[in-house]
Design a protein around this nucleic acid. Structure first.
Length: 679
DNA sequence: CTTTTCACAGTCGCGCGGATGGGA
DNA sequence: TCCCATCCGCGCGACTGTGAAAAG
């Protein structure tokens, strides 16, 4: 197959044979078994933070509920169970945990989160035993919510895409598995039944890439970081919804990745594929999403979006953030004839985006002689339900709060900068509403995009104060239920399945590693994510100049002082970026490694924070009313005055920051990334 | 009744063209 | 005076969610 053929039309003709898994495999892997394995994994996770040894079964999360997971054991029918390959294939893609014991040795993937959608593996160097000492990365694996549903017709992309060769199940083809047939015979679990051709979270393949076998031509250990993961998590907790229109609607949050571990000179095609996440048709009822019948598996249309810069060298891809901000979703099956690539989806179906990295020739042609050059990455938090109109007002509000294009719907937008300084949450040193800096020093400059994508956390304060423990909530909790949720949150937090290294546990408080800490100052510091060298000045995304974070990260040295000064509760407060500085440096800089934001530490929030909390409750109260009333009352709900402004002030103040400025010292804000990695 | 489509108002970025300033 | 580079303002198009109407 020539991947170039899909550019720009995205029309791909790929052999489907790789997905032609036998139904017997499916039968052999019942959802039930998956479930069991999953539970076992969870227990293990909660039990130990130091000896994550039980991730053998690939089954895991993916299969949870949906049963389309496959067990690690079966993944390696060829007796390679436990091999790095196995672990990869299973672990990553499926999320499942499909990391074999051996994998633990070589691959080191620790499931550190118990929240289905927010599981992380803290990976470390490949050296055995170094995991604890060198926790260098966090990468989510496909959680239970991330299971990918295979079309019953046996060909997920029968309509427009036959990319089997490009996207071998689980990226499996990647170096990890020398033979795709291994997977086929290996027996993926297809909980969906006979028709399911796709194992859950093939994405795992990503790691696969990293776990390539010795001597493998595709030995590149690719690591993919979800740059704006915090934002995705915000939406994910309420079940992300994505509008689809005939003309095509951009995703928000959009997919944005950082890639490392590629061969600098090799050429790659990078593209996103959106596949059904489950076999259900969904509807928003009673303030929450419920399944309603079976999904239409026969939906035709393009499901892939090739990054416009493809093909390009590994150096190119790694030099900058790979954003898919211009990716559009549509429900128009006839779309895609124009210049813009659009992914055709079906309303009220749940989808899972996946990132594929395919090594190609300089001309963009895939080397068919080597199947181990495809790597696939899946982030469960990227799941979303396609809708033609927003259903959950929480999602709507999040969109308005974070999407620069929706600024016009922020009621308090005009008053954001007219409020008295004392009322302002924005600690801008200047009175200029359009100041480029949110704090003295260019290092704190932030761009709108960046702020929105990475820094903004106000919504949580306002609406989801206690939802940290409610990963999949629809945010319709009543005040009472929210209290219950709070209690549950504590319990849940206590059982968070984070595998932490000694460093991570310095705080002696596991709660620090809870759900949102991955992008909080304290939480991030613990992980010691390695920084990525970013010097690019190029950004594919025009409207969303993904920047600013770098400069911000560059200023962590003084950040701590700043944070204390302006209160940590500020929604836009720059969070420390572990990658930017090694923990030691942060300490030297005077930044408390574990200082937490109010909502995280439970410390008394600032006055403004209190206001937010109250607002939150009041809002929740409204929200919690019966579904019938709910939708009406929540229409165009607004947050407390100044809330948005605070949240967005950075964007406005920094909107003029140039991309170059950002890139020059952009550490890539790794602290905000979730990533798949290969040991 | 649910879902989809459409027009709308608002914001934003980009590109074009004119104005301005400096140098030859 | 001419040429060139830079700056600024305006208009256009892209993009957003809203809300009503249409469609199923």
């Amino acid at each position: 197959m020539q991947l170039e053929n899909i550019l720009p039309s995205s029309s791909i003709n790929l052999p489907k044979t790789f997905y032609n898994l036998s139904s017997s495999d499916s039968a052999n892997n019942s959802p039930g078994s998956s479930q069991i394995e999953y539970q076992e994994v969870e227990r293990t996770e909660s039990e130990s933070t130091t000896a994550p040894k039980k991730y053998l079964s690939g089954a895991g999360m993916m299969g949870d509920g949906e049963g389309d997971s496959f067990s690690g054991t079966k993944t390696a029918p060829d007796g390679r169970k436990g091999s790095p390959v196995l672990g990869v294939g299973v672990g990553v893609g499926v999320g499942v945990g499909g990391v074999g014991e051996d994998d633990l040795t070589s691959g080191r993937r620790y499931n550190i989160d118990d929240l289905g959608s927010d599981r992380y593996f803290i990976s470390s160097s490949s050296q055995a035993g170094s995991d604890m000492a060198n926790p260098c990365s966090l990468f989510p694996y496909a959680g239970q919510t991330g299971s990918v549903y295979g079309a019953s017709n046996g060909s997920r992309y029968s309509a427009s895409l036959h990319y089997g060769s490009v996207l071998p199940p689980a990226g499996f083809s990647s170096s990890v598995c020398s033979s795709r047939s291994q997977f086929a015979s290996g027996g993926y679990q297809f909980g969906q039944g006979p028709g399911c051709l796709y194992p859950s979270y093939p994405a795992t393949g990503s790691s696969i890439g990293s776990m390539s076998l010795p001597g493998s031509a595709a030995g590149a250990r690719a690591q993919v970081y979800l740059c704006n993961r915090p934002l995705w998590l915000k939406f994910h907790r309420h079940q992300t919804e994505m509008i689809i229109t005939k003309q095509g609607r951009r995703m928000f949050p959009f997919l944005s990745f950082n890639i490392t571990g590629l061969n600098l000179t090799a050429h790659y095609n990078v593209f996103v594929e959106v596949i059904l996440a489950d076999p259900n048709h969904w509807r928003f009822q009673g303030g929450k999403w419920v399944t309603c019948g079976k999904a239409d598996n026969n939906m035709q249309g393009n499901k892939m979006y090739v990054h416009p810069e493809s093909p390009n060298t590994g150096a190119h891809w790694m030099r900058q953030e790979i954003s898919f901000g211009k990716l559009k979703l549509t429900n128009n099956k006839g779309a895609n004839n124009n210049n813009t690539q659009m992914i055709v989806l079906q309303s009220l179906h749940k989808y899972q985006p996946r990132l594929h990295i395919v090594e190609v020739t300089e001309e963009g042609v895939e080397d068919m002689s080597n199947e181990a050059k495809t790597q696939t990455f899946t982030f469960p938090e990227n799941q979303f339900i396609a809708v033609t109109a927003y259903q959950n007002t929480d999602i709507t509000q999040l969109k308005i709060d974070h999407n620069p294009f929706a600024k016009g719907f922020r009621d308090n937008y005009d008053s954001m900068y007219t409020a008295p300084e004392s009322d302002r949450l924005t600690p801008s040193p200047t009175d200029s509403p359009r100041s480029h800096q949110i704090v003295p020093g260019a290092r704190y400059a932030m761009q709108p995009f960046f702020q929105d994508q990475f820094v903004n956390q106000l919504p949580q304060n306002r609406f989801y104060a206690s939802e940290r423990a409610v990963p999949q909530t629809n945010s319709l909790l009543s005040p009472q239920s929210e209290d219950a949720a709070n209690a549950a949150a504590a319990a849940a937090a206590a059982t968070q399945r984070w595998f932490v290294t000694p460093v991570q546990q310095t705080g002696s408080n596991k709660l620090d590693l809870s759900y949102e800490n991955d992008y909080s100052a304290g939480g991030l510091l613990s992980y010691g994510i390695k920084p990525l060298p970013l010097q690019t000045s190029h950004h594919a995304l025009g409207y969303y100049p993904d920047s600013a974070f770098a400069s911000m990260a560059a200023g962590w040295g003084t950040r701590s002082t700043y944070q204390r000064k302006v209160t940590t509760g500020l929604p836009w407060s720059p969070r420390p970026s572990p990658p930017a500085f090694p923990p030691e440096e942060q300490l030297q800089a005077g930044a408390p490694p574990k200082d937490k934001l109010p909502e995280e530490s439970g410390a008394p929030p600032s006055a403004s924070s209190s206001n937010w909390i109250e607002t939150s409750h009041s809002l929740k109260s409204v929200d919690s009313t019966d579904s019938g009333v709910y939708s009406m009352v929540c229409k165009r709900r607004r947050m407390s005055p100044g809330g948005s402004s605070t949240e967005n002030s950075p964007s406005i103040k920094c909107e003029d920051l140039t991309t170059d400025e950002y890139n020059k010292d952009n550490p890539k804000g790794m602290g905000y990334y979730a990533f798949y990695t290969s040991p």
